[in-house]
Design a protein around this nucleic acid. Sequence first.
DNA 1: CGAGGACTTGAAAGCATTCAACTGAGGTGG
DNA 2: CCACCTCAGTTGAATGCTTTCAAGTCCTCG
Lengths: 253, 253
Amino acid sequence: MALTDPTTRPAGPIVHPFIAKLDGFVALTEEAKAALKQASLGAHLIGPRIDLLREGDMPEGGILITEGIACRYKHRANGARQITAYLVPGDTCDLEFHPFREMDDAIATVSACRVARISAATLNELVAGHPTVAQALRMTALVDKATLREWLLNIGSRSAMERIAHLFCELFVRLQTVGLTAEDGYVLPMTQSDLADTAGLSSVHVNRSLQSLRRQGVIDLKGKNLTILDWARLKTIAEFKANYLHLGDRAAA
Amino acid sequence: MALTDPTTRPAGPIVHPFIAKLDGFVALTEEAKAALKQASLGAHLIGPRIDLLREGDMPEGGILITEGIACRYKHRANGARQITAYLVPGDTCDLEFHPFREMDDAIATVSACRVARISAATLNELVAGHPTVAQALRMTALVDKATLREWLLNIGSRSAMERIAHLFCELFVRLQTVGLTAEDGYVLPMTQSDLADTAGLSSVHVNRSLQSLRRQGVIDLKGKNLTILDWARLKTIAEFKANYLHLGDRAAA
DNA sequence: CGAGGACTTGAAAGCATTCAACTGAGGTGG
DNA sequence: CCACCTCAGTTGAATGCTTTCAAGTCCTCG
């Protein structure tokens, strides 16, 4: 079962995942691509488990992940944490920037990441000067919302194993579009505790659910390497449809 | 305990909740207000429990709710339904419009609603001609996302009673900003089954949780009339902080 | 080699679901 | 005008998924 078509899929990671992502939504002009490239220069390398923005911060601009995986999360008074999104290379947050807005959640790296900060000024130039970029950014906001809704469905109505299977499916497809998957798997830097806080489960139960998936021969997960042994079955378990990601013809089988 | 300040809060429903909402985010010019008023003319009256858009539809423009309450939802193959958002007067969907985009979820009325459809053309004029409107619309998209994240936290980490309490708090604050609350309550058109599909619970358990809230003297719910008997306690139970709604100085105590 | 974090496993307890039956209110048609 | 139907809400009991608590293993890193 070929998950990727080598004639159209990149062999390795895409150099500018952000540009590739936007270009996939709306065909960008060459000037727009150049401007985006310029804007994403000067990305910093940041270690794992570091907060990029905290609740209550007033960000000066937006954030772009170039390498690694980050997450958005919220904390409760009792210490419980809910992860509300994963950011993979090419993903951004708070580009629909608005002045005097306090963060109502936090952003942190999961693995080590390369992170570019995009100032409000740069952003304004980008949007004002390049209508295609503006349109593509609106589309990313739309996809972000659709993804949040799908996660709500996931947590609200699926069983533990289904939730995890769904997350694995989504990450596979998203990472695939930026060339960060192997033929049948990818690097999963989250701990089981992270997965628990993502899926609204206890880490013990995540552990048992993963074992169930392993026992059924659907996945193999050793350390941080996730191998999908039976993509069709994983999709069936998760009831996964990629339509909410709005990838168009980039969508995997 | 005065929930509303009669000197600053409207006594009745706001005539143009959409304009009031946007104006609260970004001060609108008079021309912008006039244009918005024009755009929201011709709202249709639609009965309860009617689909406005279905999954797979390609909407021609956006939707604005002028009266009543609607919801966004997704269905699973097994018939399970997850409500992912409630739309109250002044709320919109799909104004961050993008051509050739298929709906990945559905929109339906809960109560009878007055609904205005805003064409892509009108929308483009509005955004192109009125920067304040464009900025305010970006802000609504931001708040929509923040609300989805809060719901994720709600379903993912709170107990049944807490989830319901949180929803009641959120709706109170949102309805209050458009003048649709009484001093200590509001009209709640959702059935217990709707609440169940919102909170990721069974309707039986919603019923029992409501009774628990009633027994504690926190709320009174008769038919479609919700009365909040103890706002402080309801907020405490829900661990409700309105910051994610980004209402600024409009926020209730 | 020690320490700590991640992962695993077992058993008990609990919150939530399912099934099933019943009440009550609202609307329809004879 | 009332019987009847339907849907929303209520209640009880049994089941079960998930959590919690606790202890122990494995692995990595300093």
